[in-house]
Design a protein around this nucleic acid. Structure first.
Lengths: 144, 144
DNA sequence: ATTTATGCAAATCGTTTGCAAACCT
DNA sequence: AGGTTTGCAAACGATTTGCATAAAT
């Protein structure tokens, strides 16, 4: 199933007209091994790479829907593997003190309600929703 | 009730050891008149002010819990009045194409479920949640 | 061969900060 | 007077980009 991930990534990149290079594979592997979204600096600590390559390739991986950019409350962009690649729909706990972002899940009943609500939006507004973002914002264990 | 807003702002600033200056009042008035979070550039269009004053005062207003910083998917910070000052709890529709952020509300039953879920988080994790952020991300009317 | 990715260094741009003058109490 | 805010200009820092080289097909 680890290979399955890379096959899927390869397919998505190809669909976007992009190659699956070693730098991109590195980034995917680093994100795969993390249990939360990583800042670019964090990915570079785990697998050194020129900064510009990390930025450029993460942007490409995002366009190909392989990774997903997560915005917290601080100034750092964070990335995680797209949920379809991990089969792990989740949400984020965001610490207002240190900016840390961690994953967690909510009851599936709540997820269903969210999806249903999302479906109603298109009819009530001109907006076409694609996904939802639910975060809980507060103080993390370390900062509390 | 418009005066009530400014009294509340004054009280919150005072509690934070800050004054309610004319620049700060300008910013509060601009945000009050908007029906969605505004970027700093947008506040300056509506009420010209040196950029640095806008940045500094919005930061102070945020510390005093008068305004709230909203993070979308683009690189611009957005600000809105704190919900307790407007009695208008809401969520955001975020356009992935142009970055626009608009307000909307969800059924109160969903809100109650969200609050209940939030209450359970503290016991399951070391995280102490203070508020939630629920956004629907997709394509806005203009970009669709 | 031709196209695409890489890596370095320089540029970009939203945001932050230093400092002297203006303001408030 | 004593401390705070202001406004300008300069600095900052995460991110982006230009360009020559290396890699992939």
């Amino acid at each position: 199933m680890t290979d399955g991930l890379h096959e899927t990534v390869f397919a998505r990149l190809r669909a976007a007209g992009q190659r699956y290079t070693s730098n991109r594979r590195s980034l995917v592997e680093v994100l795969e091994s993390a249990d939360r979204p990583l800042t670019i600096a964090e990915t570079l600590e785990r697998r050194p790479l020129p900064q510009s390559s990390a930025y450029r390739n993460l942007a490409i991986l995002e366009q190909a829907n392989v990774v997903h950019r997560v915005t917290g409350t601080d100034e750092f962009a964070r990335y995680e593997l797209a949920e379809e690649l991990t089969d792990h729909h989740h949400h984020h706990l965001i610490c207002t003190s240190c900016g840390a972002v961690s994953d967690f899940t909510v009851p599936s009943s709540l997820e269903r309600t969210l999806e249903a609500t999302m479906g109603q939006i298109a009819s009530h507004t001109g907006f076409r929703p694609e996904r939802h973002r639910l975060d809980f914002i507060g103080t993390c264990h370390d900062c509390g």
